[in-house]
Design a protein around this nucleic acid. Structure first.
Length: 552
RNA sequence: GCCCCCGUAGCUCAGGGGAUAGAGCGUCGCCCUCCGGAGGCGAAAGCGCAGGUUCGAAUCCUGCCGGGGGCACCA
């Protein structure tokens, strides 16, 4: 019996009670069951009686008692206790839980899938770091979290398009190309320019590919650096993200919006909607109509479109490509954009609550030797994606960044995450998977396989029951991670429920026979349970973009 | 000054209105000569402060205090 089956049973029980005239309430469509903190409170608990008491005009415990009586008669239910103010504490029949192991193994990775977001077409934009330098730590967090979010959304049935927006238009690209030019000519970086070592390297690469550039005047040379240097920067960013396990379906270039006339069209569209006015020589969007602090400039008085106008056109473009939901992940330094972006969507006639989600995440501090690492673009002490991967590896980096809610300002301790030891959470989870693989190998060596008529009803040891309950949570953990845009739930689940109860199971329940011990029916059932553990760990880690090695 | 996010154990962090607030590290104690012990069990220790809503608040609301991030015809 799974949580969703139990939920359905509860709904049926309430409907029965209503039908029998014992209760006069609206039958809820869904009833949530929870895993109680304490094992004394059973395998699952529901507070439905507390919630129905008021509308029914009855005492909570009375409602609980009558629901409990009906629930006890259903198959797979071991015991139903009414506790505290009126909680229903359900203990499943011991043999009813083992089926979970068989279900997991039969389903494989599909066990994590659901259809909760079926039919939703989601555009997920993340990272979108400026192509004026390598991806640094801030961007890496969104790469890890955004990619994991994309995976859980897809696992929940959504059609997800991952998108990276390259800001390759405007003044910062001018500064970037001017910086490359300066480096190539041996001049100091311009004011407001970029000065890291990578600038000199890219400049040298551009010169190597375009030997004639040295003979050109500054204006013509800078154009070469702009075209060729930006392209190289794009390629390097894509490569480093790819090596990090993150690939995008669409790399969208801001420049295309401007050159194709879509910015102009978007402004015209807003003008047609009556949300635009002209003042001080500039063109303004009246975002204050929808709660923004101030109106925003679309076209500056010098005739140049503002950066915001690109965002406006980009949003419209996404909507016109048929996306129901435009999801954008941004760092806390962009929190101020939310108001204008929502207002802009409303100016197009959309309901931003439905079509636009801006997920703001807090920044990451790296810690080494107990002290925060200071980063400065000017001083050239920026920590890049590659630096982080060199320090702790892809798996640890992705896991560390994806295991906390995006709202938390987290300190990432490089010493901890580089450890190959159990206090490193990713290691802890991977190690549980290694044990599962190692047991499977041991069984194969002994010629033991799970028999076709395996009796999962034998998995009644408390450690086995605990583990089965944990495995059964995977579908709803993934579904809630997707619904709430909180992929970290998958990581916490793997750590606190799956890996932990698997280790406890390992500690108390021997699988393979020792010496001349006999292979029993229980051996086969436990082997199957370990296969299920392996499946859940592999599947869960994969949703986070983390590998599940077979040996360590 | 205004806006957004965050304050949970000594430290790093979980905790979707539910019961006795959980992990890891660190401290103290115990088990284990084993399918890779890279484990397991236990103890001490906590919701920034003050109100409010609720049968019930770490969770929702208000104020204050503290930390972070914003507040351009820059991108």
């Amino acid at each position: 019996m799974t949580p969703s089956e139990l939920s359905a049973a509860l709904v049926a029980v309430v409907a029965e009670a209503v039908g029998a005239g014992e209760l006069s309430v609206q039958v809820p469509e869904q009833i949530r069951v929870e895993r109680p903190r304490s094992a004394e409170h059973g395998d699952y608990a529901s507070s439905i009686a507390l919630q129905l008491a008021k509308p029914a005009g009855r005492a909570p415990r009375e409602v609980a008692d009558l629901l409990a009586a009906r629930l006890r008669r259903r198959p797979g239910i071991g015991a139903v206790d009414v506790a505290g103010p009126g909680f229903l504490n359900v203990t499943l029949a011991a043999a009813a839980l083992g089926q979970v192991a068989a279900d997991v193994v039969a389903a494989g990775p599909a066990y994590a899938r659901s259809e909760t977001l079926r039919g939703q077409k989601i555009n997920l934009e993340f990272v979108s770091a400026n192509p004026t330098g390598p991806i640094h730590v801030g961007g890496v967090r969104w790469a890890a979290v955004g990619d994991a979010l994309g995976r859980v959304l897809a696992a929940s049935g959504a059609a997800v398009t991952r998108e990276y927006y390259f800001n390759d238009h405007g003044a910062q690209i001018d500064r970037f190309s001017a910086s490359l030019l300066a480096a190539a000519r041996g001049r100091p970086a311009p004011e407001d320019g970029y000065g890291g070592a990578y600038i000199a390297e890219i400049a040298a690469d551009v010169v190597a590919r375009n030997p004639d550039v040295t003979a050109l005047d500054d204006g013509a040379a800078q154009e070469v650096f702009r075209r060729d240097g930006v392209e190289q920067m794009f390629a390097e960013i894509k490569t480093s993200l790819h090596d990090f396990g993150v690939d995008f379906d669409v790399y969208f270039h801001e420049n295309d919006l401007h050159e194709s006339g879509r910015v102009t069209q978007a402004v015209q569209r807003l003008r047609d909607e009556g949300r635009v006015y002209d003042a001080d020589g500039a063109v303004w969007l009246r975002t204050t109509d929808f709660g923004d602090d101030k109106d925003r400039v679309l076209i500056r008085s010098n005739g140049e479109p503002s950066y915001f106008s690109g965002d406006v056109a980009y949003y419209l473009d996404k909507r016109e490509r048929g996306f129901d939901k435009v999801v954008i992940m941004l760092g806390a330094d962009h929190a101020g954009y939310v108001g204008r972006m929502r207002a802009m969507a409303a100016c197009f006639g959309d309901d931003p609550d439905q079509t636009l989600e801006i997920l703001i995440g807090q920044l990451v501090n790296l810690v080494r030797d107990g002290a925060p690492l200071k980063m400065s673009k000017r001083a050239g002490t920026v920590i890049t994606l590659e630096d982080l991967v060199d320090a702790i590896g892809v798996d640890a980096a992705r896991y560390a960044l994806a295991r906390s809610p995006r709202d938390s300002q987290l300190d990432l301790d490089l010493d901890l995450w580089a450890k190959r030891a159990t206090d490193n959470p990713v290691f802890y989870v991977q190690y549980a998977g290694v044990r599962a693989a190692s047991i499977a190998r041991g069984a194969a060596d002994l010629g033991i396989a799970v028999p076709a008529d395996v009796d999962v009803g034998l998995l009644t040891h408390p450690r086995e029951q605990e583990l089965l309950l944990a495995l059964a949570e995977l579908p709803r953990v993934v579904a809630s991670a997707a619904e709430l845009r909180e992929p970290h739930r998958v990581a916490r689940y793997l750590e606190e429920q799956v890996a932990r109860s698997a280790q406890r199971f390992f500690d108390e329940c021997r699988v393979l026979p020792r010496g001349d011990e006999e292979v029993t029916a229980l051996t086969g059932a436990r082997l199957l349970l370990w296969q299920a553990v392996r499946t859940v760990i592999e599947t869960g880690l994969d949703l986070l973009g983390v590998s599940a090695p077979e040996r360590m």
